[in-house]
Design a protein around this nucleic acid. Structure first.
Lengths: 328, 328
DNA sequence: CTGTTAGCGCTTTCAG
DNA sequence: CTGAAAGCGCTAACAG
């Protein structure tokens, strides 16, 4: 529309210099009340709005934070991202979201691009195994869901070991002794921890028999492996699904086969989990909490508050809905 | 880490001027092969990467498109956004996603901020009723899910009327005559069209009895209203849910009450829809298609290709899974 | 308390 | 084909 109002236009209208207008805009106290008022009026009259690009170029940093996750289409990360946005926006911080699609090369590219844009900070669900290359980024980084390795940075995670332990313990308490872990992804630190929690719970209960399906939830193999396992001569009486993605593949199998007698507990909540029959017992993954904690910590870092590097653990809770309470 | 390589550093290394380097970077053909090679080598040697902020400031436009939707945490919009990202990124275009949380004021603010950043284009799921104020934006806008009103702009929508019509027709074909429309939101154009489709299908079948629950899916009222409706003296034998958000509220009611004899067809696919018993029959909303079409059209606009303003309709298909095929 | 000068890194003139 | 000068809109540095 109108050709864009600049600082100098406001300055002219307020009969002062651009720098003084800049001071008023940025809340510098060293401006007289009278001038300040004139400037404020001019700003309103002309509908002036600062140019974020020019400002960032000069300042060397942008009022933007980057969020890099596996995929925005993943409900867990979508919730995390939504929460971050909710916290950042009121502070005048813009959020840029990007997906890695679980591809290391892609992750690198996306991060580089954000760094190039001089983002003030990054929240990353890292997919690469070693994050040393991220140490070179000149802005604070907070990891979510998976913790930092190879560099000093805060991470906001959930208690993978404890959550898995609680889930399996819950099944044991309902009489199950043959419990499968379906959907292992050994390349993910998170999953390895959940596997350890599963094993610890078995061990504690004096169970030595382990059922492990290590097919990735992204491939159809998991479907067949699960069906085969249930059809085997000595099948498990319960399944622990260590990730939402795994649950989305395994639950349909159970329902298709009508195997609703099989105990089932999932790590990560699911939409419609309480409309299934039986309802799906889950360890709630608390994406909102993860998002909130990560955003808060990043703000602290951007503000330069001196804090020790930390692994922040979001609390988990078990939500019994039926599938985890079927007897063995 | 290293202090950032600038154009002039590359120029120095290649023994030429910044402008010539700029020409090479931007693929200007009017540079001799020899110079071009020297520059390319220098770029690689120094690891030069252009500064997007400086470039945008000078050019007056940013290689970024903004995506503004109800909420990234909404699975439909998350898919749409994911698809847009997938198309934009390989073209070197950065995507900024923001949520309106269905708040007009918020929408205005977010859009203003993006415009301020000189985005090259916008993809918007508009929440405000009249979009005339968006006409002032100096970049192309493509609307998704809901169509433009009050301004000339492309929209990518689904066939709301036709989809709803097909859904209700499907129920009629299975013998239902008392079919409820649960979860109307009269302020949304989309929903009004779906309601019209519902009515048209009833009319065609010679049905005069209409059941309408106009509670917003965001409020608990919809739960009670649905339960009351089913408990009434002359209840519907089937329900058409005109939105995913509505389905997420209504399905739990049906399952909690054990009313699996009630026919159910939803507008918009649902995660785990085929694990419910019965599986949920849906009109697939095709978020990926909507995203792809919107992104493609926006690219056309940004490239300045002369095209008539259009309402592009993404195809829908009915996926029968059981709930829509229960007899009356 | 206020203003001037310079320059963030790039690209658009316009002149060789 | 190449380069010098100017400036996008803003703010840091340094006067006054």
């Amino acid at each position: 529309m109108s050709p864009r109002v600049r600082l100098r236009d406001v300055a002219a209208a307020a009969a002062t210099s651009p720098k003084t207008v800049s001071r008023v805009i940025n809340g510098d106290p060293r401006v007289s009340e009278a001038t300040r008022d004139r400037v404020r009026r001019a700003v309103l009259d002309l509908g002036y709005q600062p140019d974020p690009l020019a400002r960032s170029l000069r300042r060397g940093t942008d009022d933007t934070i980057g969020v890099v996750v596996d995929s925005v289409a993943d409900p867990f990360f979508a919730s995390v991202a939504g929460q971050i946005e909710r916290i950042a926006l009121p502070k005048g911080i813009t959020v840029m979201i990007a997906s890695t699609n679980r591809d290391q090369e892609h992750e690198r590219e996306v991060l580089e691009r954000m760094a190039q844009r001089r983002v003030a900070g990054l929240i990353v669900a890292p997919i690469s195994g070693d994050h040393a290359h991220l140490a070179g980024l000149s802005c604070p980084v907070v990891f979510v869901d998976r913790r930092a390795t190879g560099m000093e940075a805060d991470s906001v995670v959930v208690d993978d070991h404890g959550g898995a332990h609680a889930a399996v313990r819950h099944l044991v308490d309902h009489g199950h002794r043959r419990i499968a872990f379906v959907g292992h992804e050994p390349e993910l630190d998170t999953l390895r921890r959940r596997l350890a929690g599963y094993r610890a719970a078995l061990h504690e209960a004096g169970i030595t028999e382990e059922f492990l399906v290590a097919s990735s939830p992204d491939r159809d193999e998991i479907v067949h492996a699960t069906a085969d396992l249930l059809a085997s001569r000595r099948p498990p009486t319960a399944i622990f699904s260590p990730s939402t993605r795994s649950s989305m593949r395994v639950l349909p199998v159970l329902h298709r086969l009508g195997r609703l007698d099989v105990g089932f507990v999932a790590f990560g909540d699911l939409p419609l989990a309480d409309s299934l029959t039986p309802g799906v017992t889950v360890i709630d993954h608390a994406p909102e909490v993860v998002g909130r904690l990560a955003a808060a910590r990043l703000m602290d870092r951007i503000a330069g508050r001196p804090l020790p590097t930390e692994v922040i653990t979001a609390p988990l809770r078990l939500i019994p809905r039926g599938s985890g309470e079927v007897p063995a």
